[in-house]
Design a protein around this nucleic acid. Structure first.
Lengths: 338, 338
DNA sequence: CTGAAAGCGCTTACAG
DNA sequence: CTGAAAGCGCTTACAG
């Protein structure tokens, strides 16, 4: 074990532990000569401050907690990297937890974060209602940044994407290509992501003068299996849709699978636009036209927000909304007509 | 902040802090009546022990460090989940770091882990030589479990997959289907994964009585771009291969892209087998035949190994080798002939 | 079985 | 500008 402590450094340098501590913390009120002696001692001994002791005493910490809702979803990959990169740049480390969409597990991790005295917390809430989320957060005494699923009027800092606008872009694109019966597979209505993407769908329909047909609205749970099932339901209709907008990456994978199983060609017999891009979305069975979220920036932004909050706890709450981008590949059929 | 300390609980229950501590740590030598009183007090106050203080005093911690080499590779998703699940089951939390294939960053995180006094460390070494890895590890005084890239004779605990056997299965499968000019795109030879998969390729060739042609061996860096480039080189040959074995998921994606760009049909004009499965491998442009690693189990096993090591530091080192599984889909052409 | 006391490795008023 | 001393919230020999 690295059992070299501040005391060893102090002895080696011939100063008090207080002075060593001051040098370590860049306290300007230290004589240059002493500073150099301490730095040499640190170097010579390979000393490394014990973060646990520092945290206990200083009542401050340089670790950030990150709780995400489903580690298996590649959506979170770049988000994690975004968080990690800016945390690293600020010399902070990360504790990552996976709530697995389980409010109980989430609650437990919230307590862990508290017990670990993390400086702050970034979290993607699990699939529970907003009131539940809020009440859970109220219980912990740590700055929290909410990510992805978040109502605009929450009393917390948050980062999200303009879901309604993204969905609107997607469906408008489909309408412009001439599709008339556009279905949506959206997420749970108690999640803002499910609700807002659905709202964008309705706006686009209206703007395009297309009739709203409730039979074309399917509500899934953002998992592959649910995309698969709901697509089968859509295909079994007497009058199936001619296009489908699927509101997240995992469900889109399920939709694609269902379509392929039934031998339905995309986009010739069914157009498809998904939400969320993945590095391999262009390499899928049908290269996916997609509403792309700036995931890396989402992670960066959340971390910046947290850093800002830590620096100045009195600031008013802020919600940062990032824009999506429509990436046109083949599944929407745009290239069929050109 | 949760400023309720062990002292508050002691006062409330009318016992000493030592007794509270004993109850908290399930020390059996506590009178039943006192135990109940303490538990009630904990309950009533909503007390939660400060982990930082405990860690400092007890010189032991319940956090596990996990350093992976590239958070953007979906390969690590299930691994992380495997680690997380068993850690969670044992009430341990995770610090996740991403070395990003950068030995300097890795070195820094190693120091962080040490400074954080994590109980132990699971790591996927970055792309450096084994000696470098070893010497870096020697410097830290924490139990380490190596994952994925690891020589069998390392003086550490390790978990890996039988790379040579996996590659052999893949190439033998190709040979059995009648392909004669089978190329390999492998990883860096200073990584065991690159080396061992290459060795499996050679064994399979030999077993099948196929000539070894150095021109058919390409060495990439496990990233998409390199798979793409090397595939183009392969296609530009006077006498291109009739099948390609690609030794990781990211490079396979690059290969697929290159093939599609050149309008080459898989498997009709070129057969393809990849290493690593992904949940969407069957939904790609050509559903991928693949050597699948038990990633979730890899993560579980690594964590179990660590737990075992923590429980008994004197145990001899152990390397756990898990088997791969060949998943036959369409890219290999097996279904063409049936 | 229980408590008083020391101490884990730091930081930070407080004097000087 | 510097050091002696107290203390962060726990755990753990040591007595009894």
């Amino acid at each position: 074990m690295s059992s070299i402590t501040i005391r060893d450094v102090a002895d080696y340098a011939g100063v008090s532990r207080a002075t060593v501590s001051r040098v370590l913390n860049n306290n300007p009120a230290v004589d240059q000569a002493l500073r150099v002696r301490v730095e040499d001692a640190v170097q010579a001994l390979g000393y490394q401050p014990n973060r646990t002791a520092r945290r206990l005493r200083a009542q401050s910490s340089n670790v950030i907690g990150l709780i995400i809702s489903d580690i298996r979803n590649p959506y979170f990959l770049s988000i994690i990297q975004g968080v990690e990169d800016v945390a690293y740049a600020h010399q902070m480390s990360l504790i990552l937890c996976n709530s697995d969409e389980d409010p109980t597990k989430e609650q437990m991790y919230l307590r862990v974060m508290e017990a670990e005295h993390v400086a702050g917390l970034i979290m993607v809430p699990s699939q529970s209602s907003e009131e539940q989320q809020l009440s859970r957060l109220k219980k912990i005494g740590i700055p929290v940044i909410l990510l992805d699923r978040v109502a605009d009027d929450f009393e917390v800092d948050a980062v999200k994407v303009d879901n309604e606008r993204g969905a609107l872009d997607a469906v408008r694109h489909l309408a412009a290509l001439g599709y008339r019966r556009i279905a949506i597979i959206t997420g749970p209505m108690h999640l803002t992501t499910g609700r807002e993407r659905y709202a964008g769908y309705r706006s686009a329909l209206e703007a395009a003068g297309l009739a709203y047909d409730e039979a074309l609205v399917k509500i899934g749970n953002f998992k592959t299996e649910s995309g698969y099932q709901l697509t089968r339901e859509l295909l079994a209709m007497a009058q199936p849709p001619d296009a489908i907008f699927v509101s997240n990456n995992m469900m889109t994978l399920g939709t694609l699978r269902a379509l392929r199983e039934q031998g339905i060609h995309v986009p010739q017999e069914m157009a498809l636009v998904g939400f969320d891009d993945m590095p391999w979305s262009g390499d899928l069975y049908s290269p996916l036209t997609v509403v792309s979220q700036p995931t890396y920036e989402l992670g960066q932004e959340a971390t910046n927000l947290l850093l800002r909050r830590l620096a100045d706890p009195g600031l008013p709450f802020r919600t940062v909304i990032l824009q999506t981008r429509l990436i046109v590949r083949e599944s929407c059929g745009a290239k069929l007509r050109s």
